[in-house]
Computed example of a mutant assay.
Amino acid sequence: MSYEACELADLARAFVPIGESELNPDGTNRSPGTVLVDAARVVAAAERFFEAAAVFERMSGVDWQLIGDVLEVSPRAARVRFAMAEAVLRELLSSERGPVAGETEQLRAYMAREPLEMAFDLDDWVLRHEDGDSDLGTTPVSGGLAGRAP
């Protein structure tokens, strides 16, 4: 879930600055359609984060009723929406299956098998983006995982 939040944040942050080379003299976009393509990537990342949050809750023992209540849908609709993602993660955690096709699937398999290593990478990301408003310590992600079973 933290990884998906990191990806979403990085994609969204890229929209904040606007370079002069990106704009026509009248302030319109020099490359029509590119902003929409990038926005679609942000929406897709938000969907992945949303799915990861639901799976995180399920892995924490939350039942479909609560997930449905939070999303204002029936427990069945919540299960239909997220059960496959939960099943995929549980399979990754329980199997020693070989390489998975596709870079994204390989990364997710790695994250499932090496959560602490990924957490260290996310520690670095959080600390690079820390705004000084809170004391996150030196292990803002991995600190919560230390000593826990996968």
Rank of each mutant, 00 (worst) to 15 (best):
R81A: 15
Y110T: 13
A54Y: 03
A46F: 14
E91V: 07
S142A: 12
F49R: 12
P17I: 01
A39Q: 11
N24V: 00
P115W: 01
I67W: 03
H129P: 00
W64I: 04
E103C: 05
V141Y: 06
L92C: 07
R13P: 00
S142I: 01
L107P: 00
L127C: 02
A39F: 06
F120A: 03
G68C: 05
F49C: 12
E22R: 14
A101T: 07
V126T: 04
N24S: 09
L107K: 09
D121T: 14
A78G: 12
D135Q: 02
G33W: 04
A45S: 10
R113H: 13
E114G: 07
L93G: 13
T138V: 07
D135F: 01
V16N: 09
S95D: 05
V16M: 10
A119T: 01
M84S: 14
S95G: 04
E72L: 12
V70S: 14
V73M: 13
L92T: 00
L127M: 05
T138C: 03
P115A: 13
M84T: 13
S94F: 05
Q106W: 00
V100R: 15
G137N: 07
E86A: 07
A112Q: 01
L127G: 02
V70R: 07
R48M: 10
I67S: 14
S60C: 15
G102A: 06
D26N: 04
D38Q: 13
I67M: 13
L93V: 03
R128L: 03
R90P: 01
R41Q: 07
V70C: 13
P32F: 02
R76T: 13
G33I: 02
L71W: 08
D121V: 15
T104Y: 11
M118E: 05
T139N: 11
R113P: 09
R128T: 01
A85D: 06
Q106N: 12
V37S: 12
D123L: 04
E105I: 03
E103S: 08
N24C: 09
G132N: 02
M59E: 15
